[in-house]
């Protein structure tokens, strides 16, 4: 089994109003040195597969087709072999 840990993030050029609101709240509770916050999605997918290269190809395809919107988001991921 292989676990894919996938991070989908808004591109730097896209405004993140949620992140902005969190930054404002962090300032309000005393963390004045917080310069910026970006909210992203973390997705885990488990594959019934042992071949890391095969999983890598599939995860790219899954992210391109569904998990990330190429207009506004980018993604990266890590693969982890599970017992």
């Amino acid at each position: 089994m292989v676990k894919a840990k996938i991070y989908v993030q808004l591109k730097a050029s896209v405004l993140d109003p949620q992140g902005k609101a969190v930054t404002t709240s962090l300032h309000a509770i005393g963390y004045e040195r917080v310069a910026d916050t970006r909210i992203s999605k973390y997705i885990e997918i488990i594959f019934d597969e042992t071949d890391l290269a095969a999983v890598d190809t599939q995860v790219h395809s899954i992210c391109d087709k569904l998990l990330a919107n190429p207009n506004t988001e980018h993604y990266h991921f890590e693969l982890e072999t599970m017992e």
Partner: peptide
């Protein structure tokens, strides 16, 4: 329509949240 690619762009969360 935007997710299907029939129209360009994306509808993001309102800036008011």
């Amino acid at each position: 329509l935007t997710e299907t690619g029939l129209l360009p762009g994306t509808l993001l969360m309102n800036n008011t949240l």
